[in-house]
Design a protein around this nucleic acid. Sequence first.
DNA 1: CGCTTATTTGAACTTTTTCAAGTCTGGTGG
DNA 2: CCACCAGACTTGAAAAAGTTCAAATAAGCG
Lengths: 254, 254
Amino acid sequence: MSELLQIQRPLPPSLHAMKTSCVNCSMHQLCLPMGLDDSDMNRLDQIIGRRRRVARGESLYRMDDPFRNLYAIRLGHFKTYQFNAGGEQQITGFQMAGELMGMDAISTDKHHCDVAALEDSEVCEIPFQRLEELFGMIPMLLRHFHRIMSQEITREQNAMLLLGNMRAEQRFAAFLINLSSRYAARGYSSTSFQLRMSREDIGNYLGLTIESISRLVSKFRKLGWLGVDKREIQLLDPVRIKALAAGTETCPMA
Amino acid sequence: MSELLQIQRPLPPSLHAMKTSCVNCSMHQLCLPMGLDDSDMNRLDQIIGRRRRVARGESLYRMDDPFRNLYAIRLGHFKTYQFNAGGEQQITGFQMAGELMGMDAISTDKHHCDVAALEDSEVCEIPFQRLEELFGMIPMLLRHFHRIMSQEITREQNAMLLLGNMRAEQRFAAFLINLSSRYAARGYSSTSFQLRMSREDIGNYLGLTIESISRLVSKFRKLGWLGVDKREIQLLDPVRIKALAAGTETCPMA
DNA sequence: CGCTTATTTGAACTTTTTCAAGTCTGGTGG
DNA sequence: CCACCAGACTTGAAAAAGTTCAAATAAGCG
């Protein structure tokens, strides 16, 4: 919560002037334009409202905001979270470059969650109405859109599996492996990366307390599975962590 | 698990001969054809492969089966569940008439979960490829399809909220209220219905053990909130249960 | 530097699970 | 019709896993 209240620093304007288009974007083989030829990609480009910056801790949209746009992440990281009537928060996901946000709003024309930037980030605003018009003209785009929505469903089913029947160690291992493979898909190291979220956020996402996360970090470090320096993480024994995440191996006790 | 192994009784053939079409289906205002006029509804009807019966305990499709069809439930109830590499099961949802299954398979062309009938049931088989062809011709159908997928995402986010930060009583209350409102939407009683799934299934879905579910049932019964006769349920104090589910009120201790 | 926030760690406490018996029900065969 | 069996469900007591509470560090930011 407190992250949201902090002072928001604007980004330098130089970034904004930078040529931004799907064709030039390093994410275009992961993002919505995946598989489109240059001409179709340009058509998609043309409907994109603007590239919008979101400073760390700033909110991109909030629950119940009217739904007009999907957002593709160009740069940075976000978290999506919900509140229940009692005011308790649940983080439903962490998003990174190339991922699409806002699809949960299509059914009711209202956003169902809040989205906040975990670091200074940049998104492409995609007016959904105009995207729908393109669907009729670019079948490939429609198919890919369906794949992305389907992927989102799968992603959340995996989260249910995690929350529903994994023990703490397994959840944390699954969390690390998930990040690892997503960084790998983006061409980054799969064994060495920075956590963009706080321990509290991790705990919230995994259905555990911040103290439990802290203990898990220590435990994995002591086992020699993990190198930890603040939020800088190294998977020293990815095979072991993967096996733990998959449930084919259990965690040695303290 | 054991439910899957029982003897499967075929349905009487008379049912099969019955005229089945979207226009005549009582679910058409909840299901895929929602909002279509008769002519478009007929076009949808024409692509529907067949109405298929699934006996209680029988499986409609399994994880890793090739994806060809979506399935709309005409009649009955289903559960969808996943396994992790370690072989542990997690039920990701219970589906009832008018709901669409299989959307998680679009992204990889393989089903991501198993689906089993909780009672003798009947589904409409919707060849996805042909459905995609229709999307180009019936924009309304496409829009509604997007809404349904979006709803599925929302549904799962709610499940994450449930699994991630509710205590046992709240989970169970939320589960009951969820069923209640879905029956209400179908014109059935919102306070009196039959559980189609075993206590074990409920526990698995809610991330609790069967014993915990049993204790919760007893507790709610003793509090006078619930009338229970085997799987027959009556919500005697829906307001209280709703408040508990929403997190605006807590459960009195035993 | 001084303050606020993030993280770690220990110990007591809760919640839920696990283990171990029962009970109840429907179906089967005598 | 009734005894018997298998599966589903209930209940109690002990154990385990995490949480909560409390306190100490450490880090980031003006």
